[in-house]
Simulated assay, not measured.
Amino acid sequence: MSIAIGWRRAWSPTWQGRAPLPNAADTLTPDAGAVARFRGDLARLVEIDDVRLLVAVSGGPDSVALLLLAHAVLVDRCYAATVDHGIRSASADEAAFVARLCADRGIRHDILTGPLPARVGRTANLSARARALRYGLLERHMTCIGADRLATGHHADDQRETLVMRLNRGSGVAGLAGIRASGGRIVRPLLSWRRDDLAAIVHGCRIAAVDDPSNVDHRYDRARLRKALRDDTLLDVAGLVSSAGALADADDALGWTARQLFESDCSRDGQSIGFDIGNTPFELRRRVVERCLRAIDSGIEIRGEALVRFVRLLESGRPAMLGVVKGSVVDRGNAGIHWLFTLAPVRRGG
């Protein structure tokens, strides 16, 4: 996907509609206890004495709290960026608010802009396209400014919402691992923090953060779920966060095992890959088969449900197709069952 990048460093000192920020000389910082807690959380994810951290700041209380905490810990190794998607009329003013907030604290801040990616396939809803634009711009900006890691403001309440949504969709281990604390160059140091804790930090620093109307827009699944969970006292958030961490560890273990099985139990012969399935459990079979498919066709589009159907067909002894890759079953008697993956013959018209 090609994304054009633009950024600007200006802010609007005359923006109306927000409570005024304190003067630079009067800026307040989070209390020492919150800063110490954050330092510990961040140190578990990065080399805290060396890291150059880019903080993604939308202007909402979660990301503003993250910025305040990160700056308190890292000082001049903390940078900020705001992506102006251009979807809402207020987005430019919100980005300008963040720019002024950063200017008052001596934090480098850039506003990133670019065109939304085109609609592609079944997952090209507006939220997905905005997410693709956001992370594409932020990843490239990291390279431009020499940042090592990108930090986002996902927190414990986001994790709860994500887990409930994925439970409703029947997700497996990978999905129920929820939002990961780290992945690639992205870190999420606030996953043990509650939304109210973060709002209190922002309020304590006398900052009126942005209210994103999409957070209460009932056209979005997450907004409806957030409302339903608002007064819930049965789901223990700390317990859910802990369970998500345990499932993330389990997912990593399954991924590691699948890599070992791919190396030991799969063999390549020209354009074909064979898998000696033995008594491998289904979940590991599924993961090894996915590796085989990607090794045959690196550009294959694999959806979870389609992959499960593909593996189940092979388990029943029948051939299966996914994209342009064909899977077939070879019974080798005492040598066991062998699954063979090859590119399907090109169909000719006429």
Rank of each mutant, 00 (worst) to 15 (best):
R149Y: 09
R222G: 04
I337Y: 02
C266K: 01
I5H: 10
L340P: 03
R131E: 00
R285P: 00
G255Q: 09
Y220N: 01
A244W: 00
R348K: 12
A99T: 02
V57H: 09
I207C: 03
R131A: 09
R287I: 03
G17T: 10
R286F: 09
A128L: 06
C78H: 02
A65S: 14
V330P: 01
V288K: 00
G278T: 02
H109Q: 13
A320N: 06
L42P: 03
S298E: 11
V57W: 06
A92L: 14
L54A: 08
G255H: 09
S58Y: 00
L45T: 02
Q16W: 05
S192Q: 07
L28M: 08
A36W: 12
S264R: 13
R294W: 05
D196L: 13
A81M: 05
V330W: 02
V210Y: 01
V241N: 00
Q260Y: 08
V325G: 02
L313H: 04
R129F: 06
V187G: 01
S267V: 12
D84I: 04
A81P: 01
G153M: 03
N168T: 08
V346P: 00
S328N: 10
I337D: 00
R77F: 03
L54N: 08
A95W: 06
L190M: 08
D158T: 06
S267E: 15
N215W: 05
A174C: 13
D217S: 05
V241P: 00
L234G: 00
A258N: 03
A128M: 09
P117E: 09
L225D: 06
V64L: 15
A81G: 00
A177W: 03
L284D: 06
C205R: 02
E290F: 07
D269C: 13
L74S: 10
A80L: 08
